[in-house]
């Protein structure tokens, strides 16, 4: 599994498409209002899936493991910085997303952080260089 993290609008999906060859139309974009297709080869905005699961009393990691993860590209926004949110739900969401990412990181063969459109390999470094050229 290749885990891609980074801040909002940093180019995470662009990286998956351009450097990892993920067909754009096959990216499943998570949404708060509907159940994502977890069988997709690439799933983005997993932070929204975490919030959706939280609201429904489900564990996102358990849900994700209902499908085979090994060949997947998983994309999640890093929401860990900034001021501690005043809203209790946002606070819980931030923490749940952090724990979720730490757990995925342990399983991932590769972890890449995208910053301003540029990748940084955090774990298992391939695919980064050709993209930044």
């Amino acid at each position: 599994m290749h885990l891609i993290i980074g801040g909002a609008y940093q180019g995470k999906t662009e990286y998956a498409v351009a450097a990892l060859g993920v067909p754009r139309e096959e990216v499943c974009v998570c949404d708060l209002s509907r159940e994502p297709d977890l069988s997709a080869a690439c799933i983005s905005h997993l932070e929204r899936f975490v919030l959706r699961c939280m609201r429904q009393g489900r564990d996102p990691l358990t849900e994700l493991h209902r499908t085979e993860l090994e060949s997947k590209v998983l994309i999640c926004e890093d929401i860990s910085c900034g001021v501690v949110p005043v809203d209790p739900e946002l606070r819980a969401w931030r923490e749940a997303t952090g724990r979720f990412l730490c757990a995925l990181n342990r399983e991932a063969a590769q972890v890449t952080r995208v910053f301003c459109g540029l990748p940084l390999a955090l774990k298992g470094g391939r695919g980064a260089e050709e993209f930044s050229r």
């Binding site: 980074g6 940093q10 929401i79 860990s80 910085c81 900034g82 001021v83 931030r94 997303t97």
Partner: peptide, 9 residues
């Protein structure tokens, strides 16, 4: 400034 990594809405 990197301002894209917080949990605010």
């Amino acid at each position: 400034d990197a301002i894209g990594s917080d949990a605010a809405v």
